[in-house]
Design a protein around this nucleic acid. Structure first.
Ligand SMILES: NC(=O)c1ccc[n+]([C@@H]2O[C@H](COP(=O)([O-])OP(=O)(O)OC[C@H]3O[C@@H](n4cnc5c(N)ncnc54)[C@H](O)[C@@H]3O)[C@@H](O)[C@H]2O)c1
Ligand SMILES: NC(=O)c1ccc[n+]([C@@H]2O[C@H](COP(=O)([O-])OP(=O)(O)OC[C@H]3O[C@@H](n4cnc5c(N)ncnc54)[C@H](O)[C@@H]3O)[C@@H](O)[C@H]2O)c1
Lengths: 212, 212
DNA sequence: AGTTAATAGAGAAAAATTTCTCGATATAAT
DNA sequence: ATTATATCGAGAAATTTTTCTCTATTAACT
């Protein structure tokens, strides 16, 4: 049990990146210390909740001052494993896949997309923002040979399960799924649905409630 | 109280679109009735939870059989207001903005993007997938004149607050924010963070826990 | 040095959410 | 008709998450 990571409530996990963005902002603005009263006030949360959330990362604060912003940032990043680059493959170089490849920001979140895959001959062989597009047939084998842990899924929903199977066949550990589909995977595979539609549901329902 | 919409737990709201995708799949496959035992089994949830979630939409099921798939689909869609098209503006025609404009799917979710805005002269005046790109200076005024309720934010995080202010000035009701930034808005404005990073945090942490 | 103010952190309480239990009911089989 | 079975729906119980309360600690002020 000594080396086992405490399991964290998902709501906490959802809030940590929010704190991180705020912390980086104030760090850039020159603040070196911050209290939970402070964070909570800005983000409209309860200070105790922020303290409980931060406690999961193991950081210690000082009464009367709060936390060292720089230390807090790197503690959260460590906690999320965003300080270690993890190699990832992306499958489906369409509208969304290209946008993700074109986004430089993921390295800041520990994600290093080293290859993309597609079944469209017009796309195979090209490079999108320095990432080579390879034929889908090579996916399983390359996951295995390169020990890739994370697969990003940006194919149409109808193809999602098929590609998932290929990823699992290659030994993938985690799938970041952007397709509006519920993937069937064995127990031990981590799946996170990026869920545009989930987010949109919250928006549209709240708007409907608001407009009575 | 008679016309007031019940406020729904957010976890429920998050699961409803998941049910919807599954329901559409089995409907296409020819199934006309489905039980919560069934749904829960496929999606690895608790049947009671599925029943409680569905109860929020007001639908009634039949003992021994379950629910009528077609009715259930449209009941959930009504509940989320996805059967009524709502006009929306998008701001920030970059990698992600273009991908969203290129995605035909949002109409299925009640979202009708009728114009996009940018401050890059190279983009202004163009049409991306039949959506005109207009100068950012016109944003506030057009929101007001066209009574736009939903704004989609896909500008860099550094610009997010500025554009938010413009939207609010125009009288926007809800903002779907894709930038990694916490927007400051008045109480009554609905903000939903699409949160790539939030989703990624859940993924990377679970993976870290798994790999010990 | 003593006093005051702000805040961390721990534990208790409250609220929200999930899971369990059970009776009622519709369907199918005998 | 009777019986067996699957499932809904309501309420209770358990669990998880959030909020409250209090004490100890640190820093600034007098
Ligand atoms: N574009 C968006 O803004 C957006 C928003 C929400 C959700 N999504 C979801 O993301 C996914 C991709 O959307 P998109 O707009 O990029 O679609 P797209 O059609 O532009 O891209 C899909 C890509 O996948 C490739 N592909 C298809 N079948 C394949 C297979 N069997 N093997 C390998 N490659 C295959 C296609 O060649 C294409 O390049 C879809 O599931 C969509 O629902 C997209
Ligand atoms: N591309 C992705 O996959 C991705 C993933 C996660 C998050 N995001 C976030 O989405 C946002 C957009 O990302 P992107 O990759 O599309 O960036 P991008 O730089 O490609 O696009 C930004 C667009 O916004 C426009 N813009 C900038 N300032 C503006 C202003 N003041 N008024 C009007 N328009 C303005 C730019 O001209 C550009 O067209 C960013 O906040 C990014 O962090 C993107």
């Amino acid at each position: 049990m000594i080396n086992e990571l405490k399991s964290v409530p998902e709501p906490t996990l959802r809030r940590l990146p929010v704190y991180l963005h705020y912390l980086k902002d104030i760090y850039k603005a020159g603040k070196s210390e911050v209290s939970t009263t402070n964070i909570a006030g800005e983000l409209k949360l309860d200070p105790t909740q922020v303290r409980k959330d931060l406690a999961y990362t193991g950081i210690a604060g000082k009464p009367k001052v709060g936390y060292d912003v720089e230390v807090l940032i790197s503690t959260i990043e460590d906690f999320l494993n965003w300080n270690n680059l993890t190699d990832a493959f992306l499958v489906g170089v369409g509208n969304l896949g290209m946008a993700i490849l074109g986004y430089n920001g993921f390295k800041k979140y520990g994600l290093n997309i080293i290859a993309a895959f597609d079944n469209d001959p017009a796309k195979i062989g090209r490079e999108i923002h320095n990432v080579p597009v390879l034929p889908i047939e090579k996916l399983s084998d390359l996951i295995k040979r390169m020990h890739i842990h994370i697969g990003i899924l940006t194919v149409p929903a109808t193809e999602a399960q098929k590609i998932t199977a290929l990823m699992i066949q290659g030994g993938i550990e985690a799938i970041w799924n952007f397709a509006p589909a519920s993937l069937k995977v064995p127990e031990e595979i981590v799946v996170e649905n990026a869920g545009f539609t989930t987010s949109l549901a919250v928006l549209t329902r709240k708007l409907a409630e608001k407009l009575k």
